[in-house]
C-alpha cells in the first residue's frame, strides 16, 4: 500500500492536473451555451408541432436519450470526418479533437435540455396563456412575460441535475484522446507509472465541483421561489 499511494506524489500532481481544468470548463461552457440555443429551437418545434421537423426532432431526442454518451462521442468522432469528406470534400484530419467533443456535448445537451424546457413550458397551465391573450398581450409578449418566468422556475431543479451530469460526462472526453484533467492523469500515469493519486485527486475535484454546483442551484431555486 505504501508504494501504491503516496501523499508527496499526490500533492505534486495537483498543479499539473488543475492546469487542465479550463479544458473541462470550456466543454461545459460551450455545451451549455449552444445546447440551450439548440434546445430552445427543438422545444419550440416540438411544442408547435411543425410538420416533418417535429418528427425529426422526436427521433433526434429519442436517439440522444436512448444511447450512451460514450457511443455518441465515438459516433461523432468517427462519423463527422466521413460526413465532411462525402458532402463537402473537406478533410478534417487536422481538426483539434476537442471540436468533436464540443459537437457531441452540444448535440447531447440540446436533446436533454429540450425535454426539460418542453416539459416546463407545458407545465404552465393553459389558462395563463389565455389570460395573457385576454388582456391584449401578443403571442411573444405572453410567452416572455407570463409563460417564461413560470417555466424557468419549474426548469431550474432539472437543469441543475442535468448540469452536474454534464460535468461528470466531460470525464469521457479523454477516451478520444483529448487532454483534459482525465487525459492529463493518463499521461502522468504513463510518465511516472503511478496514476492512483491522480485519479483520487480528480475524484475529489469532481466532488467539490458537484457540491458547488448543487449549492449554487439550491440558492437559485430559493431565490426564484417568490410568492410561494
Amino acid at each position: 500500500m505504501v508504494d501504491l499511494f503516496d501523499w508527496k506524489r499526490f500533492f505534486t500532481n495537483i498543479p499539473q492536473i488543475v492546469a487542465y481544468l479550463p479544458v473541462t470548463l470550456k466543454i461545459v461552457f460551450y455545451a451549455t451555451l449552444f445546447g440551450v440555443i439548440l434546445a430552445l429551437l427543438v422545444a419550440v418545434i416540438r411544442i408547435k408541432k411543425i410538420p416533418i421537423l417535429h418528427q425529426a426532432a422526436g427521433i433526434y431526442v429519442s436517439f440522444m436519450r436512448g444511447t450512451p454518451m460514450l457511443v455518441q462521442l465515438l459516433v461523432v468522432f468517427y462519423g463527422i470526418p466521413i460526413l465532411m469528406q462525402q458532402l463537402f470534400n473537406i478533410n478534417v484530419n487536422r481538426w483539434d479533437k476537442i471540436i468533436f467533443v464540443y459537437i457531441t456535448y452540444i448535440l447531447n445537451q440540446g436533446a436533454f435540455l429540450s425535454e426539460i424546457f418542453r416539459c416546463s413550458i407545458l407545465a404552465v397551465p393553459t389558462g395563463q396563456l389565455e389570460a395573457a391573450y385576454s388582456v391584449g398581450l401578443t403571442q411573444f409578449q405572453a410567452f416572455r412575460r407570463i409563460i417564461l418566468p413560470q417555466a424557468v422556475r419549474v426548469a431550474v431543479p432539472s437543469f441543475g441535475s442535468d448540469f452536474i451530469g454534464l460535468f461528470q460526462n466531460t470525464s469521457l472526453a479523454f477516451l478520444i484522446g483529448v487532454v483534459d484533467i482525465m487525459g492529463r492523469a493518463k499521461t502522468i500515469g504513463t510518465a511516472t507509472k503511478h496514476v492512483l493519486e491522480a485519479y483520487v485527486f480528480i475524484a475529489i475535484l469532481f466532488i467539490i465541483i458537484s457540491l458547488l454546483v448543487k449549492g449554487a442551484f439550491y440558492l437559485l431555486d430559493k431565490k426564484l421561489a417568490y410568492g410561494r
Binding site: 452536474i164 461528470q168 460526462n169 470525464s171 469521457l172 477516451l175 482525465m182 485519479y199 480528480i202 475524484a203 469532481f206 466532488i207 467539490i208 465541483i209 458537484s210 457540491l211
Partner: peptide
C-alpha cells in the same frame, strides 16, 4: 454521487 463513473 459527485464522482464520475469512469473515475471510480
Amino acid at each position: 454521487q459527485g464522482i464520475p463513473l469512469v473515475v471510480a
